[in-house]
């Protein structure tokens, strides 16, 4: 029996009728046309589908759309400002070439943004540990880590004064 799901996506209200078995990532991609969130593995290992659900990073292939009723969702499309200015994490990934084919990038960026919200100045080890749930098949990890650390350096509230 179809169910109506109403939620906020990237700050805007959205409402769609879905089957209960519809995944959140399917709602985002197929019903709302937000194809920046990727599906890599379909077994919740790879993290390409990471989005923020009520402010915390989750794998949107392991959440039903109906579980997001009333929730606030942030996807990669919601990071940049309306005038196109990249989010500092996106800018850092570009600056440090934190991608190769780019398929894992939306999930990497969303996961990394959540990390810096909780831990504004992570160590390299903490960044690597945090990104455990995000796989880069190109093995581009070195520059991904570099980008996250550079973003932390640039944006941390108490950036080191020396």
């Amino acid at each position: 029996m179809p169910i109506t799901v109403s939620l906020t996506v990237n700050g805007k209200p959205a409402s769609r009728e879905v089957e209960p078995r519809t995944l959140l990532v399917e709602l985002l991609r197929d019903h709302l046309g937000l194809t920046g969130t990727h599906v890599g593995c379909d077994t919740s290992q790879c993290g390409a589908c990471v989005i923020h659900l009520n402010g915390r990073s989750v794998k949107s292939c392991a959440v039903l759309a109906v579980q997001a009723e009333g929730a606030s969702v942030l996807t990669i499309e919601g990071l940049a400002t309306p005038d196109g200015t990249l989010h500092p994490m996106q800018a850092a990934f570009r600056e440090h070439h934190g991608l190769q084919c780019g398929f894992c990038t939306p999930g990497m960026v969303m996961s990394a943004v959540d990390l810096l919200k909780q831990n504004p100045r992570p160590s390299e080890t903490e960044v690597r540990d945090w990104l455990e749930g995000n796989l880069c098949r190109c093995t581009g990890y070195q520059n991904i880590i570099k980008a996250v650390l550079a973003c932390a350096e640039a944006t941390a509230p108490a950036a080191s004064a020396g």
């Binding site: 919740s44 993290g47 990471v50 659900l53 915390r56 990073s57 989750v58 794998k59 392991a62 959440v63 996961s111 959540d114 990390l115 945090w130 455990e132 749930g133 995000n134």
Partner: peptide, 9 residues
């Protein structure tokens, strides 16, 4: 347990 995203759910 798992990874940060799994731990959030």
């Amino acid at each position: 347990i798992g990874d940060p995203q799994v731990r959030n759910r």
